[in-house]
Design a binder for these strands. Structure first.
Lengths: 337, 337
DNA sequence: TATATTAGTGCAATCGTTTGCAATAATCAT
DNA sequence: ATGATTATTGCAAACGATTGCACTAATATA
């Protein structure tokens, strides 16, 4: 059990120099001779030296850790986003602490507080759906810590934002259904506390009005983003005898529920009812029929968010906040051929 | 932009006491009078004090961060495992750094090295499929850092292990197919570098021999755990005219590929070919037909791994390494009714 | 040759806590 | 009333790095 606990001081002693020189050598500071740098590196390796990030973080004020806060690490686009962020920030030596809110605003506040105590160098967050107060985010900004919002965001904070053009995505999706000859298009509206769902609703409505299709309140239904809700809503529609020939769901999960319910009720998809989802969740392509959806490209979103963070870190005070609006892409599959 | 940087010293000054007392008060040490404790808590709140975990970690040697290393945070059971771990360790004040190997052994070594530099209090890891050298794991143990292996593990390290009873799961799955009258059961074998796949193969073989079904090498095929591989393998079987009436796949992904290929080739599932997968990935229940699979309960596995870690941390030297073998459950669905 | 510049290191403080040990005041037993 | 406990708090040294400033020696400039 040889517990090595070599410090820079040990290396220094070995070479009859000081810890400062060792530190500078290891960090490749200019103004250190090549000879000593190499000597330091050699003995560091020989003594199995392992830098102590904690000590460095305390002194330098940089932890090289960033906090990524998502509603749920295993849902929707978040797995890909996390991967995208990791891929990108790892290159610059950052580690990622993942926090989950489980869509609970209180937990969001708590987790952020923990991240701040951990002295993360930045926080990247997609808001919980119910979040409607923002003091916890303001606190982050007040501390001067880079804050990047992605996906489900809020505009009036002056924070960097990376998100899908939800409006355009919804518009394109709805337009697609209209072009396929559908006239009575149901829209499953997500929780309106989130900007993303309000935007999707807006896209849906504009498409209808552009094509001079009258809006029907019966077809615009609030529906949480999960499978069961999608089922129930569609069942309700069928039970009430509402007629419709297409469904544009604000989420893939509700779209899946809708598909299941339609099948159970003997409705043919896409012949009788076409379906379009939102998000391009992995399972959408496996379904039968595979469902058309709006791809948000989580990987790209994550990478973009990461780059925004890095830029902000590097520019410091000079950084100018910007919104990055990513173009969504309609993936047409068998559910709306 | 009032950047509060209150330290315990500030609180101490305010109350004319020392930092030590403040520290002890905040940490609820016994031997601090109720009066001062309350006074400290009050001024801490008043001055917007935020503990610096980094400083505490440096001094105490406890970072309250644990590293969780998985092949991919967005695949298989890992999302649920991560969630299970988080849920459990959060209660005890730990944060989770998630690292991904992308099934690359070299990256596994690197990420672990980073975790060690970050001075995590423990490492929970599911090995990359290709990993076959274990010095990096031994190094963790040599440092006296709790190491918990889960899912894809290796036995001869003397580390704590939490895993599914892969053997039993595979045996049960195969037996189920046999009981349904299937005799020519294909097994898609996962990468044999992993213990889990060797165990699943063993379970398959034992079930066959128990029921006196002859093993046929034509039906035992190596197949990576992804959709495309599943497709290709099944296509190969069909092209070669191999007859079979069931497939037991060592992974849900390959099972999905198999299902897709069978459909494309006009084979009826389950009438002509029954399918059983392994892992109970979320999408398996959404498919048409939904596929029977062996549930590993990632959530439970994560929670168990977390508890093992916590126990190990708390018992210190007294901890006795144990293997936790979780009972898998066969979820019977339409693909093998 | 004397002076100015530069390259390479060392000194020592600091980051914000934690913690073993000492010290004081207060309480108790005798 | 006196010594022995006990309850609180203070002292000061860590933890392991980073970093501004000072310093020496070597080189360049005049």
């Amino acid at each position: 059990m040889g517990k090595y606990k070599t410090t820079i001081r040990d290396i220094a002693k070995e070479l009859n120099i000081t810890a400062s020189t060792v530190s500078r050598a290891l960090n490749k500071h200019p103004g250190i001779s090549d000879a000593t740098r190499k000597a330091v590196e050699a003995t560091a390796k020989r003594l199995h030296y392992r830098p102590n990030h904690i000590a460095a973080a305390l002194r330098s004020g940089k932890s090289y850790i960033i906090g990524v806060l998502v509603p749920s690490a295993d849902k929707s686009i978040f797995p890909s986003v996390i991967r995208g962020i990791e891929d990108e920030v790892n290159k610059d030596g950052y580690s990622v602490i993942v926090g989950q809110t489980y869509e609970n605003p209180d937990r969001e506040v708590k987790v952020i507080e923990t991240l701040l105590k951990t002295r993360v160098d930045g926080i990247v967050v997609s808001l919980a759906k119910g979040t409607n107060a923002y003091q916890h985010l303001r606190r982050i900004q007040a501390e001067g810590i880079p804050l990047v919002l992605f996906d489900n965001t809020v505009s009036d904070l002056g924070a960097s934002i990376v998100k899908t053009d939800d409006f355009l995505g919804a518009y394109t999706a709805t337009e697609h259904l209209i072009e396929r000859g559908r006239k009575r298009i149901v829209h499953l509206i997500g929780p309106r506390t989130s900007e993303i769902y309000r935007e999707r609703l807006r896209g849906y409505m504009l498409a209808l009005s552009k094509y001079e299709i009258e809006m029907d309140p019966d077809l615009m239904i609030d529906c949480p983003s999960d499978v069961q809700a999608g089922q129930e809503v569609v069942k309700g529609l069928l039970d009430r005898g509402v007629t419709f020939d297409a469904i544009f769901s604000s989420s893939d999960y509700a779209a899946l529920g809708a598909l299941q319910q339609l099948k159970m009720s003997g409705k043919k998809v896409p012949e009788e009812v076409a379906i379009v989802g939102f998000g391009n969740a992995p399972f959408t392509s496996y379904l039968d029929p595979a469902i058309t959806t709006v791809d948000q490209n989580g990987l790209q979103m994550g990478q973009c968010a990461a780059r925004v963070f890095l830029e902000q870190i590097n520019k410091g005070e000079d950084y100018i906040v910007r919104k990055h609006i990513l173009q969504p892409q309609l993936i047409i599959r068998s559910s709306s051929p």
